[in-house]
Amino acid sequence: MAHLAHYREAHPLPMVITHWVNLIAMIVLILSGLEIHYPLVPGVMGIARGLHMFFAFVLVVNCVVRIVLAFVAKSAPAGGTRRLVRDYKTWLPQRDNKHQLWAWISYYLFLRREHPIAAKLGVPQKIVYLLIAPLIFFTAYTGFCLWGPTMGWPIFTWGTQLVGGAMNMRVIHYFCMWVFIIFMCIHVYLSLVEGASPATLIFFWKETPGLVYDPDTMNITGFDGMGKEPDYGETFKDPVRAAADAAAVAEREAAREGAE
């Protein structure tokens, strides 16, 4: 019964877009990068390299945009609420999920039965997502150490010397790709294993009904049926929306009864 309502406020539209850009850029970078590592498909090396460089810039710029958004845009501090805070606050340790690192790990290791009540992001999730930004910049740096036009710049030759030459840099850059691949496997798995709602929200910005969370008392207070199911308990809805949802539910009920 741990299904929270998925509100758009959790992932405002700009974040949905940056997530899409990340997804597309990473997929293209991984595929073109594999081609550059070993040209399994003949005839497309020029295209692969062009795409690789283009999307490298896209990914880096997107990452910068996302970081700026964190300080400019607002988002919900937790799932199941429409309350908004400055987005960067949802990346710092929050009142809602302090002391929960072990709670999450033990939940995923089946050492506890109950789903932790948490903020929008679980603690391990938050840490890993935060590491993705430095990983993007680091991978881009190692990439520029290998890219013809920039490999001779002092800032990049310094790094190449530090790791003991271009071969090591090449291998490091290659390993970075696999870190992204492993991250994506785990990320996709964990975001889908308990249902499709997180995915429909981040990709299609579609809201789904569920439990309502109160950031003040930091616990569940009600159920928001979003017009598909009857609401229950405290949903913090404004009266207009509540009335509209109730009407929609009544209509559905009437239609269902009519059908029966």
Binding site: E114, H115, E194
Partner: peptide
């Protein structure tokens, strides 16, 4: 798999 486990009533901490 269908919505996750039940929520804990209160955070352990």
């Amino acid at each position: 798999m269908d919505g996750g486990a039940d929520f804990e009533a209160e955070r352990r901490w």
